[in-house]
Design a protein around this nucleic acid. Sequence first.
DNA 1: TTGAAAGCGCTAACAG
DNA 2: CTGTTAGCGCTTTCAA
Lengths: 351, 351
Amino acid sequence: MATMTDVARRAGVSVSTVSYVLTGTRPISAATRDRVLEAMAELGYQPNALARGLASRRSNIVGLLLPLTGRGLGATETAFVTGATEAARKAGYHLMLCPVGAEDTDELRALATQRLLDGFLVMEVGLTDQRVDLLRTLDTPFVLIGRTADTGGLACVDIDFEQTVDDAVAHLVGLGHETIAYVNHSGASLAGGYGPAKRTEEAFEAALERHGVTGVMVPTEDTASGGRAAIRQARERCPDLTGVLVMNENAALGILADLRESGLEVPFDVSLVSMVTSEVVADLASPPLTAMTSPGTALGAAATRVLLDRLAGDGVAGDPTYTELVPCVLDVRGTSARARRRTNTAASRRR
Amino acid sequence: MATMTDVARRAGVSVSTVSYVLTGTRPISAATRDRVLEAMAELGYQPNALARGLASRRSNIVGLLLPLTGRGLGATETAFVTGATEAARKAGYHLMLCPVGAEDTDELRALATQRLLDGFLVMEVGLTDQRVDLLRTLDTPFVLIGRTADTGGLACVDIDFEQTVDDAVAHLVGLGHETIAYVNHSGASLAGGYGPAKRTEEAFEAALERHGVTGVMVPTEDTASGGRAAIRQARERCPDLTGVLVMNENAALGILADLRESGLEVPFDVSLVSMVTSEVVADLASPPLTAMTSPGTALGAAATRVLLDRLAGDGVAGDPTYTELVPCVLDVRGTSARARRRTNTAASRRR
DNA sequence: TTGAAAGCGCTAACAG
DNA sequence: CTGTTAGCGCTTTCAA
């Protein structure tokens, strides 16, 4: 394993010169640079990342804080991760997966104090989040993927739920739908203040009003069978129902199956728009889901970019508050169509 | 940021003593240990991971080599990743995501030579794999998740495809099915020597013979529409078909939809077993898929364990060849049932 | 059972 | 434009 000293000797220069051609922190004559580069190549030299980090106080590694709660990651979260990883790599950074739960503050404190990581990307952010509170007190830079209730002084990158819900409602209204159900995340999520659940709930109310249509929100478990239960409940409460928005992909598939088994045809009797959805899952349904496609990789990449910018900013900026919202984009596939005239008949057929 | 020197001063001992209470590499009297621990607690001391790594020549980080090829990770791969991450964390290691393509040998060489990582987990291994060839020449420990053609001298952890295929065929045969189609990965995968595709192809042939039934293999794209095309082709070539094995989850959903639209009822006209499948996707289908459930997290954890064992082994063991195979386990859900008597009639109904 | 001190391989003043 | 050198914070002989 060749060291920098070896390279210096071989090139006939001092170690600092070698170091400077590597970091580019000071001008080097073309001639010496070439000699150094050549020596490096001949020796197959690679700088020792640990030594480098110790001396420069920068590891070039960022941590991705990711509560690994049993069930594993969904397609959307996975896209975040790969987007962030790719973006970091392109910027010469590495990404470390840090499976620390929302409650594991001790572990997070240790992690942040070990100086292994230059900063953090925080996933699965709650409206109030202990990890965020902790990170604020430490001197570690971080950016949230998601938002807390109070984003003052924080850097956040998140889905623009308001816009996304409004776009989805607009799509359905544009197709003539006038009674719309919103199948949200679970009641527990809502009670627990889970950001996406709360925000979309409010956005849905606002969108109904803005577009002059009526509707109802139903909370659900994020599973296919949860979706089945939800759509039954929604139809009971709203027999005229012809449009459905659903927050969770798994629930969307359940809804689709349940409607079909109830003798209702999608999209002709009922139109369905799946929110924050990955393309794979959308394509996997029959018919493929009309969806607000989750900007997963873009979000991960954006968050990384923001974090790395701060790291480059080398010190605390004046007001570090910064929020970047990315809406999902509508992909019309097979589950949405113009509302039928006599929707009542169709929707009530089974009752 | 307290350093070890601070702790030593406060506890009234030398730095080396502090170091030894941390590493446990030499006996310390209970009294001094307590004083040191107390000092650490008072100062909120955390060892600097970079300094530690530099001095000890071990970073306590392992890299997960993961070709991030556009489309992102499937549920099974994601489970690998989370399983490995969790296992590493429990052993006091960190896991770094290394998105290096199968061809990026230069990048891999740099990564391995930088001494940032103590070892590698290699995902998406091909029958011949440049990354493996390279890692062999370097002195970095690594273990494959998957297998190359020649596993001599390598540590591998993989799915037991032979067993898995045989179990699946046995399940169908036990239900009275006598003509079985196997919808494999794409023809390109097969031609390219993709391990799972080749291995299952052979295992399928063997299983047919062993169980005394007939069948046909059809390659397919790993998408829902690929599955649709495949099942049509299979039924054309084998009108008696009543059992289907499918390698890809997305294709499985396509097959399900296509059979239904052809007027065939699953599981009564045709039984379907989805191979190497995640529980989420299985539950998302209607009816939920009978599947050979992918041991994703278990595999990731097993691979990590093997790697960390080698790292602890501190040097090259005698014969480093080691292979651990984990079969998928059969989860009977809604897509498999006893074969109907007059399967011919049912299967031919549409022709 | 403990301490002293020599590095680990690099960066970044400081000095020319 | 280049060299000298003092650390970065820890581990690990060597010596007691």
